[in-house]
Nucleic acid binder design. Structure first.
Lengths: 213, 213
DNA sequence: TAGATTGTTAATCGATTAACAATC
DNA sequence: TAGATTGTTAATCGATTAACAATC
């Protein structure tokens, strides 16, 4: 049922996790079928948009019936690649790095945390949830040996480009970046940014704008 | 020089922090003027887009010259409301809450962390960076007394809607939401989401897609 | 003044919504 | 079969890019 897969726009891709999340909730509630109209009402999207989005990947519905909730959830999990394992490491074992290490969402997305790295000798050696913090000089070797393909950068912004360079050199293929910079990496390396500072500034804007009116 | 301020699209607003960040870097480097062309080259945007974006807020440039870097940075800080103070509290003092409490980006955006709240009696009473963790039952009183206007939700998803309800009831006007849910709040309450799980799933998709090709 | 670069209008592109024939 | 709802095409809307007159 899968389509020949032309390039999908990022607008569509960024909605997929939301579809997945709501479908998972529906499955838990025991809902077995849903129409695009009803699903749109729940999500705050138009029915049209949902049908267009899903049809980028295949015809998952049935005329006159709607969509099978469990089936659609599994299709989307498959599209997102949530069933594929990705071994990851965290670089920067400070507050944020430790919080991310404790993040329970890894499992559900197929990511497995294998190690953490830091330059601070006071952190090296201790463990967070059975994950060892190692010296950053051991990183390249570990990546190659353990076939790590994702690096999670939780360092301050001064160090982040340097870390990215070392990750790329060691053969990593994707970066989840929490440092407030745009990393410079080769075109085949994927970077997904979580820009806390930008999010906070947008919040400041929205508060400021509302107060102005 | 400010325009009558019609409604600005979110696409524009979400680019402003990036402008601000790069302009700050340019100021630090001692660059005093920049053209939209050169600024676009640095950011990876078209010159046209930068000029369009800035002209939503006013004519900050000068024909034949370009933009004064420091002036433009200050204008954008002003548009974003980074000079206005917003008193905030964190709800949920677990790993993520504590990491956010330690987040150094608050100051630069005009946010001031005033307290943290949790239901866990083992956390209540201790302090993170001089910020006391209090029992959640003290929250409503604290919000009113200290005139808090921003709540930062770092609880697990089960508790987040309940926390949001209590925040709204206590009179809070904006929420920075780290829990993986879409909060239901009255229309005048601003919610800015940081969806770690969605970001991670997009990363999974991009890795999976690249491997497929 | 001549050159450069803005502010702004017009053209293009892409994303969203509407409409409807196909079909379960 | 009749009703419902999809998949898909067409229309609309909004955002981005190009073009250029205004002007420093």
């Amino acid at each position: 049922m899968e389509k020949p897969q032309t390039s999908i726009s990022m607008s569509v891709i960024r909605r997929l996790p939301k579809y997945y999340r709501y479908l998972s909730e529906l499955v838990e509630k025991g809902v077995t079928r849903i129409s695009s109209k009803e699903f749109g009402r729940i999500l705050g999207f138009t029915a049209s948009q949902i049908r267009q989005d899903l049809n980028c990947f295949g015809g998952f519905g049935q005329q006159g019936y709607g969509y099978n909730v469990k089936e659609l959830r599994d299709e989307i999990a498959n599209i997102l690649g949530l069933n594929k394992n990705n071994d990851a490491i965290i670089i920067g074992a400070g507050n944020l790095g430790q919080a991310i290490a404790n993040y329970s969402g890894f499992r559900g997305s197929g990511f497995l945390l294998k190690a953490m790295f830091d330059i601070n000798p006071r952190l090296v050696g201790i463990s967070i949830r059975d994950i060892k913090i190692m010296d950053i000089d051991e990183m390249a070797g570990f990546i190659e040996e353990a076939k790590i393909n994702v690096g999670i950068i939780c360092t301050p912004k001064e160090g982040s480009q340097g870390v990215a360079d070392r990750l790329v050199k060691a053969g990593i293929k994707a970066i989840w970046n929490f440092s407030p910079t745009d990393l410079n990496v080769p075109g085949d390396v994927i970077v997904e940014n979580v820009q806390l500072s930008e999010s906070l500034m947008v919040l400041a804007y929205l508060i400021n704008e509302r107060d102005r009116i």
